[in-house]
Amino acid sequence: FDGRSPVMRRKSRQLANSQLCADDKSECDEHDKLIFPRCTMERLCMVLDIVEERGLADIDIKWGDPMECHFPLIHGMKAPSLPWMILIYTIMWIGAFGIMLGSRFKLACACFAIPYWYIFFLDKSYWNNHTYLYGIVAILFWGTEANNALDATKMKGTERTVPLWNYFILKFQFFALYFIAGLKKFSVEWLSGYAMMNLSRHWIFSPFKLFLTMKQTDFFIVHWFAFIFDLTVGFWMLFDKTRIPAMVFCTAFHLMNSRLFNI
């Protein structure tokens, strides 16, 4: 039995509800403080990639030189003139900025993904596993509910969760990228150390050569470490406790590759 008057009970409920809303808002604000700075740095790479890897920095050479050969996926498909290519790249770049900032996330994904795949189909000589994965991730961002977590323009108090299957298909793409690369290295040529000989001459391997010879660096670091890394890192990224160390190794691995190869 509650001896308080109806007015007192109503005020008590209002006070409790207001406190609950305040707690929810605080939790949501805390979520935003954690998620957006971390994701923004990761998505900044998309902006830089368009300039460095997709060819915006040398667009006049790549798409404006009449002597430059291109190999489109569809026979007869031709690249538009240089001004139109600049416009297409600009739209893609604006989309990348929108994704990075979490502004109009779905629209930004469309602005990025459509030009990206169009350029992708224009010249298959630049294709590799990273190229296709990049485009697939853009499609997944666009087609799933990633905007619930990454869209900074969503109103406070709206749904901020992402379905588990959305996470799964995204994780699976990265897992498949590394695991299949590891299976590809499961050959006599690679495991015997003959696939990429003398790569240890590069300065990037100088720290390893402090305690290993060049032949040992080629065999253990270039071949065997790369094999074990590709085959297992996908598993390490699946678990919370090992994900951060795995990402550190991934970052170091890809930074080394960026110095070794022009991909």
Rank of each mutant, 00 (worst) to 15 (best):
Y178I: 03
L73G: 00
V188S: 04
C250E: 15
I88L: 14
I139Y: 15
K154Q: 15
H130I: 09
E68H: 11
F36I: 01
S12E: 08
L48S: 01
V162G: 07
R201Y: 08
F235A: 08
W190G: 06
L133E: 07
N198P: 00
H202W: 10
V233R: 01
C21E: 11
T90V: 13
I119G: 04
S200G: 09
E30D: 12
R160A: 12
S206M: 12
I94E: 14
M46T: 01
F220P: 02
N262F: 08
F229W: 12
Q173D: 07
S26R: 10
N129I: 06
F174W: 11
K62L: 05
F186A: 10
F227L: 05
L73N: 03
F253A: 14
Y118S: 04
C109G: 11
M214V: 14
F120C: 10
F261W: 07
D60F: 12
G98C: 07
M100S: 04
I114E: 08
S187I: 07
M77Y: 14
M100L: 05
F179H: 13
W203V: 15
L56Y: 06
F211L: 03
G157K: 01
K171Q: 12
K184M: 09
W63Y: 10
T90E: 11
F239W: 11
D23M: 01
F105S: 00
K209G: 01
F227H: 04
E27Y: 02
M46I: 03
F227Y: 11
L260D: 03
D151R: 08
F220H: 15
T242G: 03
D23F: 02
R54V: 09
D2F: 00
M41Q: 13
C45D: 01
R160S: 13
L107F: 05
L87K: 01
K209S: 02
F261I: 12
E53Y: 14
Y167F: 13
K171E: 13
R4F: 13
P207T: 06
A146H: 09
W84D: 00
G157N: 02
F249W: 07
G98S: 10
K11E: 13
T232W: 08
A252L: 12
I59Q: 00
L238C: 06
M214T: 14
L164G: 11
P37A: 08
E52M: 07
I180T: 02
N148A: 04
Y118T: 05
I61S: 04
W224K: 07
C250N: 15
L212K: 14
C28I: 13
W142P: 02
C21L: 10
I94Y: 08
T161D: 14
I50K: 01
F105M: 06
I59F: 00
L191R: 09
I114C: 09
F1W: 04
A16E: 10
A113L: 12
W203M: 14
K62N: 03
V137G: 02
N17W: 14
E53I: 15
F168I: 15
K215C: 04
T158M: 06
T90Y: 08
M8H: 03
K209P: 00
G64A: 07
